[in-house]
Design a protein around this nucleic acid. Structure first.
Lengths: 225, 225
DNA sequence: GTCATGATTATTGTATGCAAAATGCATTTT
DNA sequence: AAAATGCATTTTGCATACAATAATCATGAC
């Protein structure tokens, strides 16, 4: 009885949040491209709402690093320079390492089970050609590791940093054929976590990141030309 | 001539930003206390603006972790549990360490000069009783170190994390008499940076954080009772 | 032809209005 | 007395209206 009520509450999220989620998704999936203007009227019409929730959603996107607004000129989808990428990566590396360490110490049996399933799901996705699915399953894999670390703040920050890179990867990944390496890396991470071998996991995680950055770097280069 | 224009431009920031800065300041300084409701009408009257910029400012505070809103119930100043504190601290530690390392490698002569001045300014402030001044000078000191690290993203994130702790420290610091330890720690950090001694700086920074956390932990305990 | 200039339009910024939901309180019911 | 009900009030959510600023384009001066 009570659960049904709660579910209803969830079902009708404030419009600003719906708009925020919708726009974020569009940015991450590349439907809204870096540099593209976010015009209030236009978005309002497209989404069938007034400007008010759009504006509030833009303020949120701004703080999440996905949009940039110049006062009295309007907002646009945030671009990333190669330098920004280096910066994000430097931070991510420190935090993914922290996350891997904590996860190593703290994971519980059901979580490990989840991670095994996520690994398999990713492998399955990697066999196909649905980029969205692949990226989604990759995210799911890493999200479980963050969850294992038992630190919501850490999770929030790393997710945001990943987000900022992913929206570039999305585009690129399309003709990025060696998923096999990713699959292998995931397997190694899983394996290391099972052994609670912090050093090993840290090292693999490090490589995993290094491989990603190159893909993103390419995309950014193209973008800025 | 041009500078005067720029100043004018700055002087007329969109209201949402003015409101955001004002509210953030009020939260950090403890004028708006954790748990306190942020009612749109009330704030609008107090600040002499309409609800629109207030609402946008609240969305920004939300994303910065300084406010929490429950849909259709309104926003309130974010509270921090002891667990949140541990989480923030764990992340901060990883990032302050990264920041110290980078700063060690990258600082330039004029920056070091700045840091020396900031150290002295902090010492002077610590002799007095103006808590705001002390906290401000402490922030300034650390900001220079972040700047040395040449990573805006890192700076942004660490600043935000510091912010979330500081608003608790502000209250507490009032009868926290041993600034001498802080002064000493700042001096050690400066000294280590001058020698570019990464291990030393990392260690002192670690202690510096550990000392802070206890002060904040106290305040949070009181708050939750 | 190019650069100013000014009118026109598009777009953002802010205020206000109205509907819906939450809250508080008195009254009733059990 | 405690719980439930209904009504008045407060507050949020969203839409709309109006003002201020920026962008566009056409016109005219050089």
């Amino acid at each position: 009885m009570k659960e049904e009520l709660e579910l209803n509450m969830n079902a009708y999220l404030p419009l600003r949040d719906v708009v925020f989620l919708t726009l974020r998704d569009a940015i991450l999936k590349g439907e809204l491209k870096p540099g593209e203007r976010l015009m209030e009227m236009h978005l309002a019409d497209r989404l069938g709402v007034s400007r008010t929730p759009i504006r509030e959603a833009i303020r949120m996107l701004e703080k999440e690093g996905l949009a940039v607004t110049i006062p009295r000129k309007g907002a646009q989808v945030a671009k990333m320079t190669e330098n920004d990428l280096e910066n994000v990566l430097e931070v991510r590396e420190a935090l993914e390492e922290l996350s891997a360490k904590s996860a190593c110490r703290k994971w519980t049996e059901p979580e490990l089970e989840e991670l095994k399933n996520a690994t398999i799901a990713f492998e399955k996705a990697a066999e196909g050609n649905d980029v969205r699915d692949i990226v989604e399953k990759d995210e799911a894999f890493h999200d479980i590791i963050y969850k294992m670390a038992r630190n919501d703040k850490l999770m929030e920050i790393v997710s945001n940093l990943r987000e900022q890179m992913y929206r570039y990867r999305y585009e690129y990944v399309k003709d990025y054929n060696n998923y096999s390496r990713l699959v292998e890396e995931h397997e190694k991470i899983l394996e290391g976590l099972m052994r609670r071998d912090i050093d090993y996991v840290t090292e693999v995680m490090h490589l995993h990141l290094k491989n990603q950055v190159n893909a993103v770097r390419e995309t950014i280069r193209e973008q800025s030309m």
